[in-house]
Write a protein that binds this DNA or RNA. Sequence first.
RNA 1: GGGCCUGUGGCUUAGCCUGGACAUAGCGCCGGGCUUCUAACCCGGAUGUCGGGGGUUCAAAUCCCCCCAGGCCCGCCA
Length: 552
Amino acid sequence: MFHEERARIARIMREITGAEEVEDGGIHADLATSAAFALAKIERRSPMEIARELGERIAKHPDIGDMRIEVKGPYVNFHFGDSYAEKVLSRAIRERFVEGERKEERLVVEHTSANPNGPLHVGHIRNSIIGDSLARTFRCMGYRAETQYYVNDIGRQIAIVVFGLGKTGIARMDGEKGDHFIARVYIAANRLLEQSEETVEEIDRLMQQVERGDPATVAVFRRAVEDCLAGINETLKALNVIHNRFIWESDFVRNGDVERVIARVKRLPQCHEDGTLYLDLSAEGIEKPYVLKRSDGTTVYAARDLAYHIWKGHNFDRMIDVLGADHKLIGTQLIATLVLLGEVPPVILHFEFVSLPEGSMSTRAGKFVSADDLVREVTEKAFGEVTKRRPDLPEDERWRIARSVAIGAIRYDIVKVSPEKSTVFDWREALDFERQSGPYVQYAHARACSILAKAGEFTPAYELTNEFEVALMKQIGKLPFVMEQVMHELRPHLLAAYARELADLFNTFYRYVPVLKSEGPTRASRLTLVLATRNALREALEALGIDALSSM
RNA sequence: GGGCCUGUGGCUUAGCCUGGACAUAGCGCCGGGCUUCUAACCCGGAUGUCGGGGGUUCAAAUCCCCCCAGGCCCGCCA
Protein backbone atom coordinates (compact mmCIF):
# COMPACT_ATOMS: atom_id res chain seq x y z
CA MET A 1 0.00 0.00 0.00
CA PHE A 2 1.06 3.52 -0.75
CA HIS A 3 0.90 4.71 2.86
CA GLU A 4 3.17 1.87 3.99
CA GLU A 5 5.76 2.56 1.29
CA ARG A 6 5.64 6.22 2.14
CA ALA A 7 6.15 5.56 5.84
CA ARG A 8 9.07 3.28 5.00
CA ILE A 9 10.83 5.95 2.97
CA ALA A 10 10.13 8.50 5.69
CA ARG A 11 11.81 6.19 8.21
CA ILE A 12 14.82 5.65 5.97
CA MET A 13 15.13 9.37 5.31
CA ARG A 14 15.00 10.06 9.00
CA GLU A 15 17.81 7.59 9.65
CA ILE A 16 19.99 9.07 6.95
CA THR A 17 19.27 12.79 7.09
CA GLY A 18 17.44 13.29 10.35
CA ALA A 19 14.32 14.61 8.65
CA GLU A 20 11.33 12.72 7.26
CA GLU A 21 11.35 14.52 3.95
CA VAL A 22 9.22 12.58 1.48
CA GLU A 23 6.90 14.06 -1.05
CA ASP A 24 4.71 12.87 -3.84
CA GLY A 25 6.72 12.15 -6.97
CA GLY A 26 4.12 13.64 -9.28
CA ILE A 27 4.73 12.62 -12.87
CA HIS A 28 8.36 11.82 -12.15
CA ALA A 29 8.12 9.01 -9.64
CA ASP A 30 5.97 7.31 -7.02
CA LEU A 31 7.66 9.22 -4.23
CA ALA A 32 10.49 11.72 -4.16
CA THR A 33 12.58 13.81 -1.85
CA SER A 34 14.08 17.24 -2.31
CA ALA A 35 16.03 16.96 0.93
CA ALA A 36 19.22 17.71 -1.00
CA PHE A 37 18.33 21.41 -1.14
CA ALA A 38 18.20 21.81 2.61
CA LEU A 39 21.37 19.76 3.08
CA ALA A 40 23.14 21.79 0.42
CA LYS A 41 22.67 24.88 2.49
CA ILE A 42 24.09 23.31 5.64
CA GLU A 43 26.97 21.49 3.97
CA ARG A 44 27.67 24.29 1.51
CA ARG A 45 27.88 21.91 -1.43
CA SER A 46 25.84 21.60 -4.60
CA PRO A 47 22.40 19.95 -4.24
CA MET A 48 23.13 17.70 -7.24
CA GLU A 49 26.23 16.31 -5.60
CA ILE A 50 24.39 15.71 -2.36
CA ALA A 51 21.45 14.10 -4.13
CA ARG A 52 23.85 11.72 -5.85
CA GLU A 53 25.38 10.62 -2.54
CA LEU A 54 22.01 10.49 -0.88
CA GLY A 55 20.72 8.24 -3.64
CA GLU A 56 23.60 5.86 -3.17
CA ARG A 57 23.13 5.66 0.58
CA ILE A 58 19.40 5.12 0.27
CA ALA A 59 19.90 2.39 -2.34
CA LYS A 60 22.15 0.52 0.08
CA HIS A 61 19.68 0.69 2.95
CA PRO A 62 18.54 -2.82 3.97
CA ASP A 63 14.86 -1.82 4.12
CA ILE A 64 14.71 -0.48 0.61
CA GLY A 65 13.68 -3.84 -0.86
CA ASP A 66 13.05 -3.84 -4.57
CA MET A 67 12.28 -0.14 -4.75
CA ARG A 68 14.24 1.56 -7.51
CA ILE A 69 16.16 4.72 -6.63
CA GLU A 70 16.82 7.30 -9.30
CA VAL A 71 18.72 10.55 -8.91
CA LYS A 72 17.57 13.33 -11.19
CA GLY A 73 19.44 16.57 -10.66
CA PRO A 74 18.80 17.62 -7.07
CA TYR A 75 15.92 15.18 -6.62
CA VAL A 76 15.99 11.60 -5.44
CA ASN A 77 13.12 9.63 -6.91
CA PHE A 78 11.60 6.39 -5.69
CA HIS A 79 9.90 3.90 -8.00
CA PHE A 80 7.95 1.04 -6.49
CA GLY A 81 9.35 -2.37 -7.38
CA ASP A 82 7.69 -5.34 -9.03
CA SER A 83 6.42 -6.75 -5.74
CA TYR A 84 4.24 -3.69 -5.23
CA ALA A 85 1.47 -4.83 -7.57
CA GLU A 86 0.95 -8.07 -5.69
CA LYS A 87 1.05 -6.26 -2.33
CA VAL A 88 -1.68 -3.89 -3.45
CA LEU A 89 -3.89 -6.25 -5.41
CA SER A 90 -3.81 -9.22 -3.04
CA ARG A 91 -4.98 -6.87 -0.34
CA ALA A 92 -7.53 -5.05 -2.45
CA ILE A 93 -9.34 -8.18 -3.61
CA ARG A 94 -10.24 -9.18 -0.06
CA GLU A 95 -13.87 -8.84 0.98
CA ARG A 96 -13.05 -5.69 2.94
CA PHE A 97 -10.23 -3.72 1.39
CA VAL A 98 -9.31 -0.73 3.57
CA GLU A 99 -10.66 -1.80 6.91
CA GLY A 100 -7.88 -2.67 9.33
CA GLU A 101 -8.28 -4.01 12.85
CA ARG A 102 -11.21 -2.55 14.75
CA LYS A 103 -10.32 0.52 16.77
CA GLU A 104 -11.58 0.91 20.30
CA GLU A 105 -11.77 4.69 20.15
CA ARG A 106 -15.38 5.94 20.27
CA LEU A 107 -16.15 8.88 18.07
CA VAL A 108 -19.21 11.04 17.87
CA VAL A 109 -19.89 13.14 14.81
CA GLU A 110 -22.58 15.77 15.27
CA HIS A 111 -23.95 17.09 12.03
CA THR A 112 -26.99 18.70 10.37
CA SER A 113 -28.72 19.68 13.66
CA ALA A 114 -30.89 22.11 11.74
CA ASN A 115 -33.62 23.84 13.68
CA PRO A 116 -36.90 21.97 13.26
CA ASN A 117 -38.70 24.97 11.83
CA GLY A 118 -38.85 23.81 8.24
CA PRO A 119 -37.48 21.40 5.67
CA LEU A 120 -33.78 20.97 5.03
CA HIS A 121 -32.57 23.17 2.21
CA VAL A 122 -29.55 22.90 -0.06
CA GLY A 123 -27.42 24.71 2.55
CA HIS A 124 -28.30 22.30 5.37
CA ILE A 125 -27.49 19.25 3.34
CA ARG A 126 -23.96 20.46 2.77
CA ASN A 127 -23.61 19.95 6.51
CA SER A 128 -25.32 16.53 6.35
CA ILE A 129 -23.26 15.31 3.44
CA ILE A 130 -19.92 16.45 4.83
CA GLY A 131 -20.72 15.03 8.26
CA ASP A 132 -22.12 11.75 6.98
CA SER A 133 -19.17 11.22 4.61
CA LEU A 134 -16.74 11.84 7.43
CA ALA A 135 -18.49 9.41 9.76
CA ARG A 136 -18.63 6.81 6.98
CA THR A 137 -14.92 7.21 6.30
CA PHE A 138 -14.12 6.63 9.96
CA ARG A 139 -16.30 3.53 9.93
CA CYS A 140 -14.67 2.24 6.74
CA MET A 141 -11.35 2.49 8.53
CA GLY A 142 -12.59 0.44 11.47
CA TYR A 143 -13.56 3.18 13.93
CA ARG A 144 -16.68 3.21 16.03
CA ALA A 145 -18.34 6.41 14.93
CA GLU A 146 -21.76 7.47 16.11
CA THR A 147 -23.64 10.25 14.36
CA GLN A 148 -25.92 12.59 16.27
CA TYR A 149 -28.47 15.19 15.32
CA TYR A 150 -28.84 17.77 18.08
CA VAL A 151 -32.48 18.78 18.09
CA ASN A 152 -33.16 22.30 19.19
CA ASP A 153 -36.64 21.74 20.54
CA ILE A 154 -36.92 24.63 23.00
CA GLY A 155 -35.42 27.61 21.21
CA ARG A 156 -37.03 30.82 20.11
CA GLN A 157 -37.64 29.52 16.56
CA ILE A 158 -39.75 26.68 17.90
CA ALA A 159 -41.63 29.03 20.17
CA ILE A 160 -42.43 31.06 17.05
CA VAL A 161 -43.72 27.91 15.37
CA VAL A 162 -45.88 27.05 18.36
CA PHE A 163 -47.19 30.59 18.48
CA GLY A 164 -47.96 30.36 14.78
CA LEU A 165 -49.80 27.07 15.17
CA GLY A 166 -52.15 28.82 17.58
CA LYS A 167 -52.50 32.11 15.77
CA THR A 168 -52.24 31.68 12.02
CA GLY A 169 -54.90 29.04 11.56
CA ILE A 170 -52.72 27.30 9.01
CA ALA A 171 -53.64 23.63 8.72
CA ARG A 172 -51.65 20.75 7.35
CA MET A 173 -52.64 19.88 3.81
CA ASP A 174 -53.39 16.40 2.60
CA GLY A 175 -50.18 14.50 2.02
CA GLU A 176 -48.03 17.45 3.07
CA LYS A 177 -44.76 16.55 4.79
CA GLY A 178 -44.52 17.78 8.37
CA ASP A 179 -41.40 19.87 7.76
CA HIS A 180 -42.99 21.74 4.86
CA PHE A 181 -46.14 22.34 6.89
CA ILE A 182 -44.11 23.70 9.84
CA ALA A 183 -42.21 25.99 7.47
CA ARG A 184 -45.47 27.54 6.26
CA VAL A 185 -46.49 28.14 9.86
CA TYR A 186 -43.08 29.55 10.75
CA ILE A 187 -43.02 31.94 7.79
CA ALA A 188 -46.54 33.20 8.53
CA ALA A 189 -45.76 33.57 12.26
CA ASN A 190 -42.74 35.69 11.44
CA ARG A 191 -44.94 37.98 9.37
CA LEU A 192 -47.23 38.48 12.37
CA LEU A 193 -44.20 39.04 14.54
CA GLU A 194 -43.03 41.90 12.43
CA GLN A 195 -46.35 43.64 13.02
CA SER A 196 -46.72 43.89 16.78
CA GLU A 197 -44.62 43.90 19.92
CA GLU A 198 -47.18 42.01 21.99
CA THR A 199 -46.53 38.91 19.96
CA VAL A 200 -42.87 39.07 20.97
CA GLU A 201 -43.95 39.03 24.61
CA GLU A 202 -46.18 36.08 23.90
CA ILE A 203 -43.24 34.16 22.53
CA ASP A 204 -41.10 35.02 25.55
CA ARG A 205 -43.91 33.67 27.71
CA LEU A 206 -44.01 30.42 25.73
CA MET A 207 -40.27 30.00 26.19
CA GLN A 208 -40.51 30.55 29.93
CA GLN A 209 -43.33 28.02 30.18
CA VAL A 210 -41.51 25.34 28.23
CA GLU A 211 -38.32 25.80 30.20
CA ARG A 212 -40.28 25.52 33.48
CA GLY A 213 -41.70 22.29 32.14
CA ASP A 214 -45.35 23.36 31.94
CA PRO A 215 -46.91 20.10 30.66
CA ALA A 216 -49.36 21.58 28.17
CA THR A 217 -46.75 23.82 26.57
CA VAL A 218 -44.16 21.05 26.51
CA ALA A 219 -46.63 18.80 24.70
CA VAL A 220 -47.35 21.39 22.00
CA PHE A 221 -43.64 22.04 21.45
CA ARG A 222 -42.93 18.35 21.30
CA ARG A 223 -45.67 17.68 18.78
CA ALA A 224 -44.49 20.49 16.49
CA VAL A 225 -40.87 19.35 16.64
CA GLU A 226 -41.81 15.72 16.05
CA ASP A 227 -43.88 16.60 12.98
CA CYS A 228 -41.06 18.62 11.51
CA LEU A 229 -38.37 16.15 12.41
CA ALA A 230 -40.25 13.26 10.83
CA GLY A 231 -40.14 15.15 7.54
CA ILE A 232 -36.48 16.06 7.94
CA ASN A 233 -35.60 12.47 8.73
CA GLU A 234 -37.36 11.28 5.60
CA THR A 235 -35.23 13.67 3.55
CA LEU A 236 -32.05 12.53 5.26
CA LYS A 237 -32.87 8.88 4.64
CA ALA A 238 -33.47 9.61 0.97
CA LEU A 239 -30.00 11.15 0.87
CA ASN A 240 -28.42 8.07 2.49
CA VAL A 241 -27.61 10.17 5.54
CA ILE A 242 -27.71 8.14 8.71
CA HIS A 243 -28.12 9.54 12.20
CA ASN A 244 -27.65 6.98 14.93
CA ARG A 245 -29.30 9.21 17.50
CA PHE A 246 -31.38 12.33 17.81
CA ILE A 247 -30.48 14.15 20.99
CA TRP A 248 -33.16 16.51 22.25
CA GLU A 249 -31.89 19.70 23.74
CA SER A 250 -34.68 19.92 26.28
CA ASP A 251 -33.46 16.68 27.88
CA PHE A 252 -30.47 18.53 29.27
CA VAL A 253 -32.79 21.06 30.86
CA ARG A 254 -35.06 18.37 32.31
CA ASN A 255 -32.32 16.16 33.72
CA GLY A 256 -30.65 19.07 35.50
CA ASP A 257 -27.42 19.05 33.45
CA VAL A 258 -27.95 22.63 32.35
CA GLU A 259 -28.36 23.90 35.92
CA ARG A 260 -25.33 21.88 36.98
CA VAL A 261 -23.13 23.37 34.30
CA ILE A 262 -24.41 26.86 35.11
CA ALA A 263 -23.46 26.27 38.74
CA ARG A 264 -19.95 25.28 37.65
CA VAL A 265 -19.68 28.25 35.32
CA LYS A 266 -20.70 30.57 38.18
CA ARG A 267 -17.59 29.53 40.08
CA LEU A 268 -15.34 30.68 37.23
CA PRO A 269 -13.74 34.09 37.74
CA GLN A 270 -14.78 34.99 34.17
CA CYS A 271 -18.47 34.67 35.08
CA HIS A 272 -20.57 37.78 35.59
CA GLU A 273 -24.19 38.29 36.53
CA ASP A 274 -25.67 41.64 35.82
CA GLY A 275 -29.04 41.14 34.27
CA THR A 276 -27.80 38.28 32.14
CA LEU A 277 -25.39 35.55 33.15
CA TYR A 278 -22.36 35.60 30.89
CA LEU A 279 -18.68 34.80 30.61
CA ASP A 280 -16.06 37.38 29.83
CA LEU A 281 -13.62 35.49 27.62
CA SER A 282 -11.48 38.46 26.62
CA ALA A 283 -8.45 36.87 28.31
CA GLU A 284 -8.96 33.98 25.88
CA GLY A 285 -8.91 36.42 22.99
CA ILE A 286 -12.68 36.49 22.52
CA GLU A 287 -14.11 39.97 22.93
CA LYS A 288 -17.81 39.09 22.76
CA PRO A 289 -19.48 38.10 26.04
CA TYR A 290 -20.77 34.52 26.06
CA VAL A 291 -24.33 34.83 27.33
CA LEU A 292 -25.79 31.74 29.00
CA LYS A 293 -28.92 33.09 30.70
CA ARG A 294 -31.34 35.81 29.75
CA SER A 295 -32.40 38.41 32.29
CA ASP A 296 -35.68 36.54 32.76
CA GLY A 297 -33.68 33.55 33.98
CA THR A 298 -34.22 31.31 30.96
CA THR A 299 -31.18 29.71 29.34
CA VAL A 300 -30.01 30.42 25.82
CA TYR A 301 -28.83 27.81 23.35
CA ALA A 302 -25.21 28.26 24.49
CA ALA A 303 -25.94 26.93 27.97
CA ARG A 304 -27.67 23.82 26.65
CA ASP A 305 -24.90 23.28 24.13
CA LEU A 306 -22.34 23.37 26.92
CA ALA A 307 -24.26 20.67 28.80
CA TYR A 308 -24.55 18.60 25.63
CA HIS A 309 -20.82 18.73 24.95
CA ILE A 310 -19.91 17.84 28.51
CA TRP A 311 -22.17 14.81 28.21
CA LYS A 312 -20.59 13.85 24.89
CA GLY A 313 -17.12 14.35 26.32
CA HIS A 314 -17.88 11.86 29.08
CA ASN A 315 -19.34 9.25 26.75
CA PHE A 316 -17.00 9.45 23.77
CA ASP A 317 -13.26 9.66 23.21
CA ARG A 318 -13.46 12.18 20.42
CA MET A 319 -16.07 14.70 19.32
CA ILE A 320 -16.35 16.18 15.86
CA ASP A 321 -18.96 18.85 15.15
CA VAL A 322 -19.87 19.91 11.65
CA LEU A 323 -21.16 23.47 11.75
CA GLY A 324 -21.78 26.32 9.37
CA ALA A 325 -19.33 29.20 9.20
CA ASP A 326 -21.89 31.36 10.99
CA HIS A 327 -21.15 29.32 14.13
CA LYS A 328 -17.47 30.19 14.22
CA LEU A 329 -17.70 32.72 17.02
CA ILE A 330 -19.99 30.66 19.22
CA GLY A 331 -17.86 27.61 18.49
CA THR A 332 -14.73 29.33 19.76
CA GLN A 333 -16.63 30.48 22.84
CA LEU A 334 -17.87 26.95 23.48
CA ILE A 335 -14.38 25.48 23.18
CA ALA A 336 -12.83 28.16 25.41
CA THR A 337 -15.47 27.60 28.07
CA LEU A 338 -15.14 23.82 28.03
CA VAL A 339 -11.38 24.22 28.49
CA LEU A 340 -11.92 26.60 31.43
CA LEU A 341 -14.19 23.98 32.99
CA GLY A 342 -11.55 21.30 32.51
CA GLU A 343 -13.70 19.43 29.99
CA VAL A 344 -12.71 18.04 26.61
CA PRO A 345 -13.53 20.40 23.73
CA PRO A 346 -14.81 19.16 20.35
CA VAL A 347 -13.03 19.56 17.07
CA ILE A 348 -15.25 21.73 14.90
CA LEU A 349 -15.34 21.47 11.13
CA HIS A 350 -16.82 24.65 9.71
CA PHE A 351 -18.13 24.85 6.18
CA GLU A 352 -18.93 28.06 4.34
CA PHE A 353 -22.35 29.02 3.10
CA VAL A 354 -24.39 27.89 0.14
CA SER A 355 -26.37 30.72 -1.40
CA LEU A 356 -28.77 31.04 -4.30
CA PRO A 357 -27.98 33.08 -7.42
CA GLU A 358 -30.46 35.68 -6.13
CA GLY A 359 -28.92 35.87 -2.66
CA SER A 360 -28.63 34.07 0.66
CA MET A 361 -31.21 31.54 1.77
CA SER A 362 -33.64 32.13 4.60
CA THR A 363 -36.24 29.74 6.01
CA ARG A 364 -37.93 32.64 7.77
CA ALA A 365 -38.39 34.55 4.51
CA GLY A 366 -39.29 31.39 2.61
CA LYS A 367 -36.30 31.91 0.33
CA PHE A 368 -34.69 28.51 -0.17
CA VAL A 369 -34.46 25.48 -2.42
CA SER A 370 -35.56 22.52 -0.32
CA ALA A 371 -33.60 19.30 -0.40
CA ASP A 372 -36.83 17.49 -1.27
CA ASP A 373 -37.28 19.60 -4.41
CA LEU A 374 -33.67 18.99 -5.33
CA VAL A 375 -33.98 15.23 -4.89
CA ARG A 376 -37.21 15.13 -6.88
CA GLU A 377 -35.87 17.14 -9.82
CA VAL A 378 -32.61 15.26 -10.02
CA THR A 379 -34.36 11.89 -9.73
CA GLU A 380 -36.71 12.73 -12.58
CA LYS A 381 -33.81 13.77 -14.78
CA ALA A 382 -31.98 10.57 -13.83
CA PHE A 383 -35.03 8.48 -14.66
CA GLY A 384 -35.05 10.01 -18.12
CA GLU A 385 -31.39 9.16 -18.58
CA VAL A 386 -31.83 5.58 -17.39
CA THR A 387 -34.82 5.10 -19.66
CA LYS A 388 -32.84 6.42 -22.63
CA ARG A 389 -30.00 3.98 -21.99
CA ARG A 390 -31.84 0.96 -20.64
CA PRO A 391 -35.32 0.86 -22.16
CA ASP A 392 -35.27 -2.90 -21.65
CA LEU A 393 -35.39 -2.67 -17.86
CA PRO A 394 -38.73 -2.76 -16.01
CA GLU A 395 -39.95 0.60 -14.78
CA ASP A 396 -39.49 -0.01 -11.05
CA GLU A 397 -35.92 -1.10 -11.72
CA ARG A 398 -35.30 2.10 -13.68
CA TRP A 399 -36.69 4.17 -10.79
CA ARG A 400 -34.47 2.32 -8.33
CA ILE A 401 -31.40 3.09 -10.43
CA ALA A 402 -32.55 6.68 -10.97
CA ARG A 403 -32.83 7.26 -7.22
CA SER A 404 -29.32 5.98 -6.63
CA VAL A 405 -27.94 7.99 -9.52
CA ALA A 406 -29.69 11.11 -8.25
CA ILE A 407 -28.32 10.75 -4.73
CA GLY A 408 -24.88 10.03 -6.19
CA ALA A 409 -25.07 13.20 -8.27
CA ILE A 410 -26.27 15.35 -5.38
CA ARG A 411 -23.88 14.04 -2.76
CA TYR A 412 -20.87 14.11 -5.05
CA ASP A 413 -21.66 17.58 -6.32
CA ILE A 414 -21.69 18.89 -2.76
CA VAL A 415 -18.89 16.88 -1.19
CA LYS A 416 -16.38 17.53 -3.98
CA VAL A 417 -15.92 21.17 -3.03
CA SER A 418 -13.65 21.99 -0.10
CA PRO A 419 -15.65 23.05 2.95
CA GLU A 420 -14.00 26.45 3.28
CA LYS A 421 -15.33 27.57 -0.07
CA SER A 422 -18.66 29.32 -0.19
CA THR A 423 -20.78 28.17 -3.11
CA VAL A 424 -23.74 29.28 -5.14
CA PHE A 425 -26.34 26.62 -5.80
CA ASP A 426 -26.61 25.92 -9.52
CA TRP A 427 -29.34 23.73 -11.03
CA ARG A 428 -27.33 23.09 -14.16
CA GLU A 429 -24.45 21.60 -12.17
CA ALA A 430 -26.75 19.66 -9.87
CA LEU A 431 -28.33 18.00 -12.91
CA ASP A 432 -25.03 17.14 -14.57
CA PHE A 433 -24.17 13.43 -14.65
CA GLU A 434 -20.99 13.73 -16.65
CA ARG A 435 -17.36 13.38 -15.92
CA GLN A 436 -16.82 15.13 -12.61
CA SER A 437 -19.88 13.60 -11.06
CA GLY A 438 -21.14 10.84 -8.80
CA PRO A 439 -22.80 8.93 -11.67
CA TYR A 440 -19.48 8.94 -13.53
CA VAL A 441 -17.87 7.08 -10.64
CA GLN A 442 -20.92 4.82 -10.26
CA TYR A 443 -20.73 4.03 -13.96
CA ALA A 444 -17.10 2.93 -13.72
CA HIS A 445 -18.13 0.65 -10.85
CA ALA A 446 -21.01 -0.81 -12.89
CA ARG A 447 -18.65 -1.49 -15.79
CA ALA A 448 -16.28 -3.35 -13.50
CA CYS A 449 -19.19 -5.37 -12.10
CA SER A 450 -20.34 -6.22 -15.58
CA ILE A 451 -16.95 -7.62 -16.55
CA LEU A 452 -16.74 -9.67 -13.36
CA ALA A 453 -20.24 -11.04 -13.83
CA LYS A 454 -19.29 -12.32 -17.29
CA ALA A 455 -15.86 -13.62 -16.31
CA GLY A 456 -16.79 -16.54 -14.07
CA GLU A 457 -14.26 -18.05 -11.66
CA PHE A 458 -10.60 -17.13 -11.84
CA THR A 459 -7.46 -17.50 -9.76
CA PRO A 460 -5.88 -14.19 -8.74
CA ALA A 461 -2.70 -13.30 -10.59
CA TYR A 462 -0.47 -10.27 -10.44
CA GLU A 463 1.34 -9.88 -13.73
CA LEU A 464 0.77 -6.41 -15.02
CA THR A 465 1.95 -5.89 -18.55
CA ASN A 466 1.21 -2.32 -19.57
CA GLU A 467 1.16 1.27 -18.33
CA PHE A 468 -2.65 1.40 -18.05
CA GLU A 469 -2.70 -1.53 -15.66
CA VAL A 470 0.16 -0.16 -13.59
CA ALA A 471 -1.37 3.31 -13.28
CA LEU A 472 -4.68 1.80 -12.20
CA MET A 473 -3.04 -0.48 -9.63
CA LYS A 474 -1.12 2.44 -8.15
CA GLN A 475 -4.26 4.48 -7.70
CA ILE A 476 -5.94 1.53 -5.96
CA GLY A 477 -2.98 1.37 -3.57
CA LYS A 478 -3.60 4.94 -2.49
CA LEU A 479 -7.11 4.44 -1.08
CA PRO A 480 -6.07 3.76 2.54
CA PHE A 481 -3.72 6.75 2.39
CA VAL A 482 -6.48 9.03 1.15
CA MET A 483 -8.90 7.82 3.81
CA GLU A 484 -6.25 8.48 6.48
CA GLN A 485 -5.91 11.97 5.09
CA VAL A 486 -9.66 12.53 5.17
CA MET A 487 -9.74 11.49 8.83
CA HIS A 488 -6.75 13.59 9.88
CA GLU A 489 -7.65 16.69 7.98
CA LEU A 490 -11.45 16.31 8.17
CA ARG A 491 -11.64 16.98 4.45
CA PRO A 492 -13.92 14.45 2.74
CA HIS A 493 -13.61 16.20 -0.62
CA LEU A 494 -10.22 14.52 -1.00
CA LEU A 495 -12.04 11.21 -1.25
CA ALA A 496 -14.32 12.58 -3.96
CA ALA A 497 -11.29 13.63 -6.00
CA TYR A 498 -9.67 10.25 -5.41
CA ALA A 499 -12.73 8.33 -6.57
CA ARG A 500 -12.97 10.42 -9.72
CA GLU A 501 -9.31 9.81 -10.58
CA LEU A 502 -9.75 6.10 -9.97
CA ALA A 503 -12.76 6.07 -12.29
CA ASP A 504 -10.76 8.02 -14.90
CA LEU A 505 -7.95 5.48 -14.84
CA PHE A 506 -10.34 2.56 -14.96
CA ASN A 507 -12.23 4.02 -17.92
CA THR A 508 -9.00 4.49 -19.83
CA PHE A 509 -7.95 0.95 -18.97
CA TYR A 510 -11.38 -0.25 -20.05
CA ARG A 511 -10.96 1.42 -23.42
CA TYR A 512 -7.50 0.12 -24.23
CA VAL A 513 -7.08 -3.15 -22.39
CA PRO A 514 -9.33 -6.08 -23.26
CA VAL A 515 -10.07 -8.27 -20.26
CA LEU A 516 -12.53 -11.00 -21.21
CA LYS A 517 -10.88 -11.59 -24.57
CA SER A 518 -7.39 -11.97 -23.14
CA GLU A 519 -6.05 -15.37 -22.17
CA GLY A 520 -4.12 -17.29 -19.56
CA PRO A 521 -2.26 -15.44 -16.78
CA THR A 522 -2.91 -12.12 -18.53
CA ARG A 523 -6.64 -12.65 -18.27
CA ALA A 524 -6.39 -13.71 -14.63
CA SER A 525 -4.24 -10.69 -13.82
CA ARG A 526 -6.60 -8.30 -15.56
CA LEU A 527 -9.59 -9.81 -13.81
CA THR A 528 -7.73 -9.45 -10.51
CA LEU A 529 -7.17 -5.81 -11.34
CA VAL A 530 -10.83 -5.31 -12.23
CA LEU A 531 -11.90 -6.94 -8.98
CA ALA A 532 -9.50 -4.75 -7.02
CA THR A 533 -10.81 -1.68 -8.82
CA ARG A 534 -14.38 -2.63 -8.10
CA ASN A 535 -13.58 -3.01 -4.40
CA ALA A 536 -11.73 0.28 -4.23
CA LEU A 537 -14.55 2.08 -6.03
CA ARG A 538 -17.14 0.37 -3.88
CA GLU A 539 -15.48 1.34 -0.62
CA ALA A 540 -14.79 4.89 -1.75
CA LEU A 541 -18.43 5.26 -2.82
CA GLU A 542 -19.59 3.68 0.42
CA ALA A 543 -17.59 6.26 2.38
CA LEU A 544 -19.18 8.98 0.28
CA GLY A 545 -22.65 7.58 0.95
CA ILE A 546 -23.22 6.84 -2.74
CA ASP A 547 -24.74 3.53 -3.86
CA ALA A 548 -22.26 1.37 -5.73
CA LEU A 549 -24.59 0.14 -8.48
CA SER A 550 -23.76 -3.07 -10.30
CA SER A 551 -25.84 -2.06 -13.29
CA MET A 552 -27.01 1.28 -14.60
C1' G B 1 -15.23 49.63 12.03
C1' G B 2 -13.19 44.66 13.99
C1' G B 3 -12.72 39.17 13.29
C1' C B 4 -12.86 34.61 10.22
C1' C B 5 -13.04 32.51 5.19
C1' U B 6 -12.45 32.93 -0.12
C1' G B 7 -10.23 35.07 -4.90
C1' U B 8 -6.39 29.84 -9.77
C1' G B 9 -8.08 29.75 -18.23
C1' G B 10 -15.08 32.16 -20.44
C1' C B 11 -17.58 29.25 -16.04
C1' U B 12 -16.77 25.59 -11.87
C1' U B 13 -12.62 23.54 -9.31
C1' A B 14 -7.73 20.61 -7.02
C1' G B 15 -3.17 21.96 -5.07
C1' C B 16 -2.01 26.27 -0.13
C1' C B 17 -1.76 24.03 6.53
C1' U B 18 3.51 20.38 5.72
C1' G B 19 7.47 25.95 -0.21
C1' G B 20 10.59 22.34 -4.73
C1' A B 21 10.96 19.38 -11.02
C1' C B 22 6.24 21.35 -17.04
C1' A B 23 -0.37 24.40 -11.82
C1' U B 24 -5.28 19.57 -11.21
C1' A B 25 -9.51 18.28 -13.48
C1' G B 26 -14.51 19.14 -15.37
C1' C B 27 -18.04 22.26 -18.20
C1' G B 28 -18.06 25.14 -22.52
C1' C B 29 -15.27 25.62 -27.45
C1' C B 30 -12.61 23.03 -31.88
C1' G B 31 -11.49 18.06 -34.05
C1' G B 32 -11.84 12.65 -33.79
C1' G B 33 -13.82 7.57 -31.94
C1' C B 34 -19.55 2.74 -30.96
C1' U B 35 -18.93 -4.82 -36.27
C1' U B 36 -14.44 -4.85 -29.44
C1' C B 37 -16.08 -6.37 -21.85
C1' U B 38 -22.72 -0.82 -20.86
C1' A B 39 -20.47 5.84 -25.42
C1' A B 40 -23.43 8.31 -18.07
C1' C B 41 -17.34 6.50 -22.02
C1' C B 42 -12.49 7.43 -24.59
C1' C B 43 -8.57 10.34 -27.46
C1' G B 44 -6.39 14.99 -29.44
C1' G B 45 -6.38 20.63 -29.60
C1' A B 46 -6.93 25.91 -28.05
C1' U B 47 -7.48 28.72 -23.53
C1' G B 48 -3.72 30.63 -17.10
C1' U B 49 -0.56 38.19 -15.12
C1' C B 50 -2.49 31.37 -9.68
C1' G B 51 -6.98 39.10 -7.42
C1' G B 52 -2.93 43.38 -7.25
C1' G B 53 1.69 45.11 -5.04
C1' G B 54 5.87 44.42 -1.89
C1' G B 55 8.97 40.97 1.01
C1' U B 56 11.43 36.17 2.79
C1' U B 57 14.07 32.06 0.10
C1' C B 58 18.70 28.65 -3.94
C1' A B 59 13.20 28.00 -4.97
C1' A B 60 6.53 31.09 -3.76
C1' A B 61 -0.14 29.38 -6.26
C1' U B 62 1.90 27.69 -1.41
C1' C B 63 5.13 31.55 3.96
C1' C B 64 5.00 37.13 5.78
C1' C B 65 3.14 42.39 5.09
C1' C B 66 -0.06 46.01 2.56
C1' C B 67 -4.13 46.85 -0.74
C1' C B 68 -8.62 45.46 -3.66
C1' A B 69 -13.12 42.38 -4.31
C1' G B 70 -16.84 38.76 -2.47
C1' G B 71 -19.07 35.62 1.63
C1' C B 72 -19.96 34.95 6.87
C1' C B 73 -19.93 36.74 11.96
C1' C B 74 -19.89 40.73 15.58
C1' G B 75 -28.22 39.26 19.27
C1' C B 76 -30.87 38.37 26.38
C1' C B 77 -31.30 34.01 17.90
C1' A B 78 -29.43 29.37 16.85
